[in-house]
Amino acid sequence: MNWVNAVIQGMLLGGQYALIACGLSLTFGVMRIVNLAHGDLAVCGAYLGLVLSSALGVPVWITLPLLLPVAFAAGLALQLLLFGRALRHGVLAPVLVTFGLSVMIENLLQVAATSDPRGLPGGSLALASFHITGGITVSWLFLTAFLTACAVLSGLQLLLSHTSWGRKVRATADDVDTARLVGIRVRPLFATVAGIAVATAALAGVFIGTIGTFDPLTGTDVLIFAFEAVVIGGIGSLWGTLVGGVALGVTQVVVGEVNQAYAVLAVNLLFLAVLTVRPGGLFTSRQVLREAAGQGAG
């Protein structure tokens, strides 16, 4: 029963990874920006949740209608003022800019909030759990995080597949020059994508802060897991990102069941193995790979 439990807990943990990773997947898939500050932006979301919930004296969930629009606006501003400018100077510039942003956020947080670990008040949900059978207990909080991840990914997928906005995003991801030529306004479009990415990061940050603790440097660890989930799942595939996150979570918990010391190592080995066997990730179609190869050659 321990193994079944480990797999279930791992899947739920994987949902959290996927929630963090989907914004990273979106920014890379559409704008070709590897946002190295993504994890730090998630942690900023957690700190913002902390500030808002203590100011208002409510559980952090109640602050989400305020927190998510603020995060969305921050994403808009970052894209318009920072990432968009960096993109005009080749592929390396955005990497340097987001790395710099990551360092700045971590240090500013240390100055403003000290390096003490914090947690977010999750209200009654934080401690509640239910039994399925025998030894298997599921935390409502973990389940909520998992279901939220599924809902966010489904929502994004629906937006991308069935709205005019989504069509424009996919067209721009295919070919940004031609997108401009057919009349798509790329700057505002990229800004909304970045806004959504940062809002999902902030939402993930709130779950991180409620489930565990966070400090100004948590973002780096968060980024690595999110990045691995994106790569395992296949770049640009949102459902792949969920599978990637779940694969990471299950590996981590199942190996942790054997020996906790090897849990994170196992996750990184899984990442390395997938990269070796299927460098494009599990869910990247052959067509996408062919096109990527064609672009590389041309």
């Binding site: 005019s164 067209a171 295919d174 997108a179 030529l181 009349g183």
Partner: peptide, 23 residues
């Protein structure tokens, strides 16, 4: 444009709809 430059991952209809975006 020269070389057609369709959006390969979009369907035919979606390509046309994107063209109508700023009609």
């Amino acid at each position: 444009p020269e070389g057609r430059k369709l959006f390969p991952s979009l369907t035919v209809e979606e390509n046309i709809q994107v063209g109508a975006a700023a009609a």
